[in-house]
Amino acid sequence: MITNFISMNGDGLFVWLSFGVTIFACLVVYIKTKKTLNKYEKEFVEEIEKLSVVERKKVLEKSKIATQVLTSQSKSA
């Protein structure tokens, strides 16, 4: 039964290859996208932390998104 499922009456190679290529490509893109996002989030937080207290306050007051990035980073840390 398992052999039949894998061979799919001779079409198994093509079916598994199609699904395999799709899953592999999607996985690679997912990992790469997630890594890039994490890298940018980390760099952004580091840049904010480099600022002086006054500058940091100014940035956080001006940009609510900056505060949200900081919050989400501190949650995941």
Partner: peptide
Amino acid sequence: KTEIIRMKKKNI
């Protein structure tokens, strides 16, 4: 999200 952060980074 990455694009938003990239834009905010430039603003800093």
